[in-house]
Simulated scan of single mutants.
Amino acid sequence: MIHRSFLTVVLVLCTLSTLLTGCWDTKDINKRLMPVVMGICKEKNQDYRIILQIPSPQKKGSQYMESSSATINNAVDNIRTKSEKSIDLLHIRLFLICEKTAKEGIGDIIDYAIQANDISIKGLLAIVKGDFDDVIHHEINANPELSSYDFFSEQAGWTPETTIVRLWEAYRNIKSNTQDMSIPILTKGTDTLYQFKGSAIMGGDKMVGEISSDEVLIYNVFQERYTGGTIEVAEDSSVRIKKATIKHALNWTESGPQIKSRIRLKVEILENKNEETEGQITKKLKEIIEKRAQKLITDLKSDKADVLAIGQLFRKRMNDEQIRDWKKIWFEDLDYEISAEITILNSIYVKSPNKIKKQDQ
């Protein structure tokens, strides 16, 4: 015989199960707008101008919504107010900041994005050089929202000659005493959506200089993000870097910090029209890499911006006061030495018309 108490428990559980089913606070996808790009630029009156790029299957392109206000949050709320659908910021993949604002400081922008509950901290950052509206509204194909992100995707258009910075990395670097960051610079493309123009040197939250595309190679090697690329050694010869690593030897003397870095490159020769020897190519490539590295560090010391995060390497050797003064004092006094070690893996793919003729004969 079934006890009455047992029946009561079963009835209660059944009642609760009906209450728990369903998602009462969900919104139909047709009632939501999901921006993938947010453009941010300060106007002359210091108001933030916000532009949201939203995929629009009906238009086979993108829809743009914008507003201006004294704060980013209020500008976004203004866009939400005039929108006929709910705006979901969780899908924003790319934040484009105009150059003028980057030079004034992006600390407020990063703080807003990190503190917002509906923005992914994995979003990417880029600085726009030139006409901000032209770059934001520029479209090449029917899916510009995908192209925007693909330029920074390691599985798509990203190359080791460009930098890549996410929101959480920018927040960490701005708050750090021993490292800065480099943010890619974009302009309007001609046959492509964007064109990379090197990277910005960020001192704290302000843009204080620029790194050329050639010097970005050194930056990515220091960041251990270099996955291979092609370098022109001379007018008629080029090599492909298959692997790049870096090792550091640190020392702290009475005069200050010292570092000796050795960049090791494993390369394949792609073109060698002048039929130079492997030794000649190795020597030229070594000179190119060391010259770029020396120039980059000299410029960074002048700008007092440690985008290579050398301070992080010395962090365990410094006291609290030295850590606080790293960018102001010790980085500028840094004694550095950089050398490159080149290994040519093979020359199977050497393109030499003269050699081909000899073989045919």
Rank of each mutant, 00 (worst) to 15 (best):
K100L: 09
G209Q: 03
S199P: 05
K129V: 06
Y149Q: 09
K197D: 14
K188A: 01
P144R: 06
V216Q: 03
I110Y: 01
N220R: 05
V128L: 05
A113R: 09
V208A: 04
D180I: 06
I121W: 06
S120M: 12
R225C: 11
Y226R: 02
D108G: 07
F152E: 05
S120P: 00
A102V: 04
E145F: 07
Q179D: 14
I174Q: 01
K103P: 04
L124A: 11
A102P: 02
K122L: 15
I92L: 09
A126W: 00
Y226S: 11
S153M: 14
L167G: 01
M202H: 03
S176L: 14
R93C: 08
L167R: 01
L146N: 09
D205E: 14
I211R: 01
G198W: 06
I87W: 04
I174F: 02
C98N: 05
P144S: 12
E139D: 12
T101Y: 00
T230A: 09
T230C: 11
R93Q: 05
E145H: 06
V165E: 05
K85G: 07
L125E: 10
S147D: 15
D205Q: 05
I106H: 00
L167W: 03
D180K: 01
D108E: 15
M207F: 07
T192L: 12
R172Y: 14
A116D: 15
T159M: 01
T159R: 08
K103S: 12
Y226K: 02
Q115K: 15
I164H: 10
G204P: 09
L94Y: 03
S120R: 06
E210R: 11
L90I: 11
I164L: 14
I87F: 03
V165D: 09
S176F: 01
L124R: 04
F196Y: 07
I218L: 03
S147W: 10
I87M: 11
Y112H: 07
T178C: 08
L94W: 10
T101A: 04
S212E: 07
K100H: 12
E169I: 08
I110W: 02
K85A: 11
E232A: 04
K100T: 12
T227N: 14
T162L: 07
V221I: 13
K206M: 10
D118Y: 09
M202A: 07
I106D: 14
V165Q: 14
D205A: 06
I164Y: 06
V208N: 03
T187H: 05
A102I: 01
S182V: 07
P184D: 00
I140M: 15
E104A: 09
D88W: 03
E154D: 14
F95I: 09
I164A: 10
V135N: 03
I110A: 08
I106N: 11
K129E: 13
T163P: 02
N220D: 12
L217C: 11
S182H: 09
I231S: 08
